[in-house]
Nucleic acid binder design. Structure first.
Length: 206
DNA sequence: GTCAAGATTAGT
DNA sequence: CTAATCTTGACG
C-alpha cells in the first residue's frame, strides 16, 4: 500500500483539498537522503473567482501550471527572495492550488538546519518561504509531478490532525471577498504554524 | 521597453 | 517599521 497521495486526491476543489492536507507529509529526496515534514498550515487559492489568486486573470507564463492537471507542484519566487510551494488542484483549466505554509519537521531536521546557525527547530519551517529553504525547494521543481514518488511528493501521515481552525489568508491583496474569505486552514496550537495575529482569532472548522 | 508590486522574512 | 532582491505582468 502506497502512502503517496494519488492524483484523485488533488482532482477536486482547493477548498476540499486544503483541510485534507493537514497531517499529511511533504517528502523531499535530495542527495539520496529523505527530508520530510508534517503539514500544519495551508491556504486555498481558486481561479477566476478569487482576486487573491495568481490564476485570477487567467493563465500567464507564471501561473500556467495552475491551469494544468491536478497533482503537480506550482513553485514561484516571491519578493525576489523566497520560494513558495503549492499543489495544483481541481479540474484542468480551472486554475486552483493550495499553498503549503508550514511544516512540523519529521525527518532530517538537522539537515534542514545546515547553514542556518543554531536555529530552534520550531522556527525551521513555520512559513512558506522558510519551508522551501529547509527542503531545498526552488523553481526547478515547478511543474513537478507530485504523484511520481521522485524528488518531491506528498503522502499520508501517521497521526491524525489536531483541531482544524480557519482564518483569512495571510498577506493577500484583492477585493473584499478575497481578503475576508476564511481559506487558511491550520492546526490550532501546533508549535510550527506561522506567526501571525490571525492565530488568535481563528475559528474552529472541524 | 518600462515600472510598480509582490501568497515573505529577518533585522532595527 | 523597513530593507532585501528580482521576477512577473500590466501597460504603452
Amino acid at each position: 500500500m502506497t502512502r503517496i497521495l494519488p492524483q484523485s486526491f488533488y482532482a477536486r476543489s482547493a477548498l476540499g483539498v486544503a483541510p485534507d492536507l493537514l497531517g499529511c507529509r511533504v517528502v523531499r529526496e535530495m542527495d539520496g537522503q529523505h527530508l520530510s515534514g508534517r503539514i500544519v498550515e495551508v491556504e486555498a487559492y481558486l481561479g477566476a473567482e478569487d482576486a487573491a489568486s495568481h490564476a485570477y486573470r487567467g493563465p500567464t507564463s507564471r501561473s500556467q501550471v495552475m491551469f494544468g492537471p491536478a497533482g503537480y507542484a506550482y513553485v514561484y519566487l516571491i519578493y525576489g527572495i523566497h520560494h513558495c510551494l503549492n499543489v495544483v488542484t481541481g479540474e484542468e483549466g480551472q486554475g486552483g492550488a493550495v499553498l503549503i505554509r508550514a511544516l512540523e519537521p519529521v525527518f532530517g531536521a538537522e539537515i534542514m538546519q545546515k547553514g542556518r546557525g543554531q536555529e530552534d527547530v520550531r522556527n525551521l519551517s513555520n512559513g512558506p518561504g522558510k519551508l522551501c529553504q529547509a527542503l531545498g525547494i526552488d523553481k526547478t521543481l515547478n511543474a513537478h509531478d507530485l504523484t511520481a514518488g521522485t524528488e518531491l511528493w506528498l503522502e499520508t501521515g501517521n497521526r491524525p490532525p489536531e483541531s482544524i481552525y480557519t482564518s483569512p489568508r495571510i498577506g493577500v491583496r484583492g477585493d473584499e471577498a478575497a481578503l475576508s474569505a476564511p481559506w487558511r486552514f491550520y492546526l490550532q496550537g501546533n508549535a510550527h504554524i506561522s506567526p501571525t495575529p490571525f492565530n488568535q482569532n481563528g475559528s474552529l472548522w472541524k
